[in-house]
Design a protein around this nucleic acid. Structure first.
Lengths: 184, 184
DNA sequence: CACAATTCAGTTGTGCACAATCAAAATGCG
DNA sequence: CGCATTTTGATTGTGCACAACTGAATTGTG
């Protein structure tokens, strides 16, 4: 079934040896790489698992919780605004917002000024959920085992990493643009 | 009717300062929490985007790449072994391995000893891909902008975080065990 | 041997991420 | 004004994560 015990150090060589890259060990690159990307992947999914447990009693998933946080903080927001703040596109947001609407937490409404825009409003139920959600951050913080300062440091580290990674993606994207002559 | 409270700051000015979040420490928790979990989420997806770009020329997705790394390092492995090393369950691995088999990179074969077990073998094509994959780790490392030491530190930090998070999940899991006698 | 429990892979269903595409509305330009 | 372009949201299709379940094979016990 799902993961049980099995330690993260499993097959991983502690590789507590020399700090520098030994020469002529190309295969080690593959192993080392696996450890790094695996660690990131594992942390991400472990975090997701914690949110899954904590948010279960609110009936929210983690991305749904992110959307609600934006709405609690800023009030009515168009879909585009949610996408910008959370870096999610409509392919993700559209069905997600429909599920939130089905749950009675939000209301979707076409803007009168710009008929293309869809405004997302909180319903009274959605507002009320905010009170129950206040306990969430503390429970998450407890689960991480990190103090306030460590959490801030982690956030700064991750933000810097994200910026570097996004830069790379952008660079590669313009390095190989798709031919505009594509006829549909 | 166009009753919508105009929100001049709406277009998303994160630099606008903390002016909005005036009252209540509790609300600060929600905002702060959004920043932390958002940072983790963003880093994870940014990393995924980089892998998507780098692995595109190999025709692999990131989880498929992880599976190939295990096979390159350890050779023929049962599905269960892949699941343990990568913390993935059969619901994820089964279709993934079928796609790798359809791409001609692996072969799935029932073990003769234990008919329940399915051994995953590398095909010659799968072996050959290893050479082209050797460049991947360096490109990823370049994209992160991290040095070797920083990468190791990040890995250690993430591993510690994962362990704490997994502990929490396990604790909560046993705290609320399965419901009443579910007959089947 | 019979029978229950366990192991292992697969399947189903729900939800998210992302690329590609489309339609409608707004906007810009001659 | 007429028409191309841009903006905005929705839709479609592929792939991954995970829970719950099925089913076959193995193992343990009497």
């Amino acid at each position: 079934m799902s993961h049980q015990e099995s330690r993260p150090t499993e097959a991983g060589r502690p590789a507590a040896g020399p700090g520098d890259v030994a020469p002529g060990v190309e295969d080690d690159f593959l192993v080392l790489d696996r450890q790094i990307c695996f660690s990131l992947n594992a942390a991400s999914r472990a975090f997701n698992g914690v949110y899954r447990v904590v948010l279960k009693e609110l009936g929210l998933t983690y991305p749904q919780y992110l959307v609600m946080l934006v709405l609690w903080e800023h009030g009515t927001t168009p879909v585009k605004g949610l996408g910008e703040r959370l870096r999610l596109d409509s392919g993700t947001l559209s069905p997600l917002l429909k599920r939130l609407e089905a749950a009675g937490l939000v209301r979707r409404e076409r803007s009168a000024e710009d008929e293309r825009s869809v405004q997302i409003h909180l319903t009274p139920d959605g507002e009320a959920l905010r009170d129950r959600a206040r306990r969430v951050p503390l429970r998450i913080a407890a689960a991480t085992g990190l103090g306030h300062q460590d959490a801030l440091a982690l956030r700064a580290l991750l933000d810097g990493l994200t910026e570097a990674l996004d830069d790379f993606t952008r660079t590669e994207a313009v390095a190989d643009p798709s031919p505009p002559g594509t006829v549909r």
